[in-house]
Simulated assay, not measured.
Amino acid sequence: MRFTRVIAVGAAALMASSLGAIAAYGDDTSSGETIVVAGQEFGPEDGLRVTTESWVVPSGGEAVGATYSSPRGGMSTQAVWGSSYAYSREILQLDYIGYAKAGGNIYGGQRIIRVCFYWTRGSVRSATTCADARYDGRWTPGPEVTASFSDSLDPNAPQTQFWALKYSVPPQG
Score class of each variant (00 low, 15 high):
Asn156Gly: 06
Gly173Asp: 12
Tyr96Gly: 00
Glu62Asp: 11
Cys130Asn: 03
Arg49Thr: 14
Leu94Arg: 13
Leu48Lys: 04
Arg49Leu: 05
Gly137Ser: 02
Gln159Asp: 15
Asp95His: 10
Gly122Ile: 00
Ala8Cys: 03
Ala11Val: 11
Gly10Lys: 01
Phe162Met: 04
Val56Thr: 14
Gln40Met: 10
Val57Gly: 02
Val56Glu: 12
Pro158Met: 04
Thr129Ala: 07
Ala21Ile: 07
Leu165Met: 15
Gly137Pro: 00
Cys116Asn: 06
Ala66His: 10
Glu53Lys: 13
Ala102Arg: 05
Gln161Tyr: 06
Ile35Leu: 07
Ala12Gln: 08
Gly39Ser: 06
Gln110Asn: 11
Glu90Asp: 05
Val57Asn: 01
Ser123Tyr: 06
Ala63His: 06
Ala63Val: 05
Arg121Val: 01
Tyr135Gly: 03
Pro171Cys: 07
Ala127Phe: 11
Met15Thr: 13
Ala147Val: 04
Ser148Thr: 15
Thr140Lys: 08
Trp55Gln: 00
Ala13Leu: 11
Trp163Ser: 03
Thr29Glu: 14
Arg72His: 10
Leu165Ser: 11
Gly32Glu: 12
Gly109Tyr: 00
Gly73Tyr: 00
Ala164Gln: 07
Gln172Val: 15
Gly108Val: 02
Trp55Tyr: 15
Thr146Asn: 08
Pro58Cys: 05
Thr120Ala: 04
Thr52Trp: 02
Leu153Gly: 14
Val145His: 05
Leu165Val: 07
Ile106Asn: 12
Val124Ile: 12
Met15Trp: 08
Ala11Gln: 11
Gly60Ser: 03
Glu53Trp: 10
Ser150Lys: 10
Arg49Ala: 05
Tyr68Ala: 15
Pro171Leu: 09
Trp81Gln: 15
